[in-house]
């Protein structure tokens, strides 16, 4: 199968700091590829470049075969890319239902005038969108809170809201930035199932997550970053055993301790 997302030699510099340095990888349909690394390794920066929020200084991003490097985020959405945010980006004064309805924008948006005059075509779209949004909320377990404003909800609930909203785009590629952050064990289990389910429907998933148990369990492929560079990649077992990865996470001393403990 051809990859849905191809990242080649991607780099970005902020002043003298190379936040992401020459990173390449690809994600195929149904694959869950995880990006791991300590805080500040460049994971979110990488996401922001892929989703068009930052312009890379070098390298390219290809989506479903087309070069989309530095394309506007709304055009990437049109090509099938959706994402969630590490530091929540919900629409606070809209209800949960409306938040997910916004995710249907590309399916429902037409001309402004019919919306202004409340023409039947516009009202029909709103009804259909509301139905679809409600079933997506049910999928992440939030249907009971559909008519509550987002700002009244807990962090964990809003994380799931963002997944529902991203799914509303019917994406081919889904970027999840720490979906399990702030979730308890039960909620993490639910998110684990949800992600696996989405992937098995043929969506390519790129995941950033700090919960290593979750990452090791669901990833088909892992990329480890440190100081913006790719230090390892492969299947979960290989990456977990990679000495560079252990060093990045635990520091040189920690690595020695781990090695001694093994010996």
């Amino acid at each position: 199968m051809t990859p849905l997302l191809e990242v080649a030699n991607l780099s970005i510099a902020f002043g003298g700091l190379r936040a992401v340095d020459d990173v390449s990888f690809e994600v195929r349909p149904g694959q869950i590829v995880s990006v791991i690394g300590p805080n500040g390794a460049g994971k979110t920066t990488l996401f922001n470049m892929i989703s068009g929020l930052y312009r890379p200084t070098q390298g390219s991003v290809r989506l479903v075969g087309a070069d989309v490097t530095s394309a506007e985020p709304h055009l990437l959405a049109r090509r099938g890319l959706a994402r969630t945010f590490q530091n929540l980006q919900v629409f606070p004064s809209m209800t949960l239902l409306e938040n997910v309805m916004v995710g249907h924008h590309l399916q429902e948006a037409g001309a402004t005038l019919p919306d202004l005059f409340g023409l039947p075509s516009s009202r029909r779209k709103t009804r259909a969108t509301a139905e679809s949004a409600l079933s997506l909320l049910a999928r992440v377990g939030l249907e009971k809170a559909a008519f509550r404003e987002a700002l009244t909800m807990s962090y964990g609930a809003l994380k799931r809201l963002e997944i529902a909203r991203a799914l509303a785009l019917r994406p081919k590629i889904l970027l999840l930035d720490e979906p399990a952050a702030g979730c308890n064990a039960v909620e993490t289990e639910e998110i684990d199932q949800l992600i696996t389910e989405i992937a098995s429907s043929g969506v390519a998933i790129l995941l950033v997550e700090h919960d290593m148990k979750l990452v090791m369990k669901i990833s088909s492929h892992i990329i480890a970053l440190d100081h913006g560079r790719k230090i390892a990649e492969g299947n979960p077992g290989d990456v977990a055993a990679n000495p560079d990865v252990i060093a990045a996470y635990l520091g040189q001393k920690g690595q020695e301790q781990v090695l001694h403990a093994d010996g």
Partner: peptide, 15 residues
């Protein structure tokens, strides 16, 4: 209303 709430999220929703 979405771009009012979060410009960044609105753009990634295809707006």
């Amino acid at each position: 209303r979405a771009l009012h709430g979060s410009d960044v999220a609105a753009r990634t929703m295809g707006i």
